[in-house]
Amino acid sequence: MSETTIGGIAGRMPKFIRRADPAVVTAFACIVLLLFLGSLYSRSFLSPEYLLQQLKVASFLGVIATGMMLVILLGQIDLSVPWSVAVGAMMAAAAAAYGPVGAALAIPFGICCGIMIGIVNGIGVAYLRIPSMIVTLATNAVAQGLMVVYTGGFSPQDSATGAMRYLATGFAIPGVPNAVIIWAVIGAAMVFVLTRTGFGRSVYGIGNRERAAYLSGIDTRRVVMIAFAVSGGLSAFGGVLLAGYASKAAQSMGDAYLLPSIAAVVLGGTSILGGRGSYLGTVAGVILITLLQSILSVMQMPEAGRQIIYGVVIVAMLLLYGRAPASR
């Protein structure tokens, strides 16, 4: 399968260069550049503790971006991420309030709520054929409304369970944060699904041309629906981890993850039109975004400056390698 990697450049070059996606290479080059610039500012940027800490922070975004990538590969988009994250976190924390049984079921319950949101998205996109951008915006609004009614407009008082805290901040293997292990496991599963299973092939097929995929006998609507459910579930799981990290859920905790998750996927070379992209690129994008945020906050850039630099960097990088072909 790997010999037919999409986007291969004409080939007299060595195999590994020929197979590398220029976008992924650019993204990794930018990571190195950022680390270099950071190390000029302060020596501690290259210390293992700092890098591991960044990897841990990146893993929350990584889990969420994994779901987003699956949806973007289909040529759709999931704008319900903010409140899927918040719903996952709040519902997990809410379940934790119901004694030991609730605490045991907290994490699965949070994820299930996210999957429910994803399924509504999937029905809207796959069966009702509503543009994904619109239906996910609408479910986002509904999820927000539900949470506002549930919490009464205040931040919920429930706190995260021990298990959630352990997943987000613990160390099962000494020196490696659990969150990073979770991201690695989810990432590996995603790579396997995308490259080694029929489902993954269908995702790329639908992203390229849904009509063709349908005529080839793929149940495209079921695939789209599953992809949205997975995206919702992973967003909620990201929320569960974040709640464990902060030890409680908050109203607008997901707002900060919509733009970064899309940006990470797109900066990693996945085409926003679908059908093209690799998980390695998404990993690069997630690390790139996290490092950028971290460096800006270490330099004590105020929120306003961070937003501006952030937007400008994304537009600039996309102009470098994310442009559509000219219409001729």
Binding site: I77, M133, L258, L259, I262, A263, V266, I272, L273, Q307, I308, Y310, G311, V312, I314, V315, L318, L319, G322, R323, A324, P325, A326
Partner: peptide
């Protein structure tokens, strides 16, 4: 030649 969704989310941040 960027996609309007991504481009305007980014300019919106700016």
């Amino acid at each position: 030649r960027l996609q309007p969704i991504v481009a305007t989310i980014a300019t919106g941040a700016v």
